[in-house]
């Protein structure tokens, strides 16, 4: 470096690029984030465009064409008409897979949204106010943690009856605990910082402080938990559907597809492998994205 560049560095006080620019740079160099985002976007597009890109109708049963294997099998029955074959009722498997992505994403997103609102509200209030509020919230969290999620969900669904809406609400109301725990401790840390005291001294109202001073500094934690809980909800839905208490047939849920195929695992293994792999890819991509967001937004926490 010559003396000229030294001089310019001395005169420009902002040697560092803006936080936004630095984050963009970190995003594009983080392979986990990029892979996760790519797969998730692909699945999302698959779900969104299902009516246009599907080869058939998810509910059309053609019993004469049942159990056609996917095209990569050696069987003579394999045909490009059904690239992923058909199930035991002769429904096009690829179509059902595409429509199934809709249900998985809908449930994951819906349950995450409900649990996120509940958990964040409780956690932020407990962390900010402390004292009695904190005690009450802690009690609610402990109560919630003492309930086994799958058993409670099974019980509720078997009493109320099963539908997509019921599953979303039951899961949403059951998995907010991690949001509450993490948001509580994140808020406690931020609340102790001087800029919050300064906002109080400026006469800011409490909602304003929570929204403009506290929330922006805990959103990175929030996003990470949100991705984890979304994956969690998707897996729980699959489990419920597998047990026959989630989404009801003939809806094409991935969990239900696995459940319907379990009798044929030895003779037609693709029936269980394909939705299983799809579920695996979805959950993995969400988790990769979550880890990526954590690394990208809080570089000081790495290493």
């Amino acid at each position: 470096m010559t003396i000229d560049t030294v001089k310019t560095q001395v005169t420009t006080d902002s040697q560092e690029p803006s936080p936004g620019a630095m984050m963009r740079k970190r995003i594009f160099t983080h392979w986990g984030f990029m892979i996760g985002a790519f797969v998730l976007i692909a699945i999302f597009l698959m779900a969104l465009l299902a009516p246009y890109i599907s080869p058939g109708d998810p509910f059309d049963q053609v019993l004469s064409r049942k159990l056609i294997p996917p095209i990569w099998s050696d069987s003579a029955k394999a045909t490009w008409e059904h690239p992923l074959g058909t199930d035991h009722l002769g429904r096009d498997y690829m179509t059902r897979l595409f429509y199934g992505a809709r249900i998985s994403l809908l449930i994951g997103f819906g349950a995450m949204l409900i649990s996120g609102v509940i958990g964040t509200t409780l956690g932020v209030l407990a962390g900010y106010y402390g004292g009695r509020v904190d005690m009450v919230v802690n009690f609610i969290i402990t109560t919630r943690l003492s309930m086994p999620v799958v058993l409670v969900a099974l019980a509720v669904v078997s009493i109320v009856g099963s539908s997509l809406t019921v599953v979303i609400w039951v899961l949403g109301l059951l998995i907010w605990d991690r949001f509450a725990v993490v948001m509580r401790s994140a808020t406690q840390q931020v609340r102790a910082l001087d800029f919050v005291t300064s906002a109080q001294a400026l006469g800011c109202s409490t909602p304003r402080i929570l929204l403009t001073e506290v929330m922006p500094n805990i959103t990175n934690h929030l996003i990470v938990i949100a991705t984890l809980e979304m994956a969690h909800a998707i897996l729980l839905e699959a489990a419920l559907s597998f047990l026959g208490l989630g989404v009801q047939p003939p809806e094409p849920s991935w969990g239900l597809m696995i459940s319907e195929a379990k009798g044929m695992i030895f003779f037609d293994p693709w029936l269980i492998t394909i939705p299983g792999l799809a579920l695996f890819a979805l959950v993995l991509s969400i988790n990769l994205l979550g880890d990526g967001i954590r690394d990208v937004t809080a570089p000081e926490n790495r290493n």
Binding site: P19, L193, D194, T212, E213, P216, N217
Partner: peptide
């Protein structure tokens, strides 16, 4: 370092 909100 802690008296200014880093996100603003």
């Amino acid at each position: 370092y802690s008296s200014l909100n880093p996100r603003k």
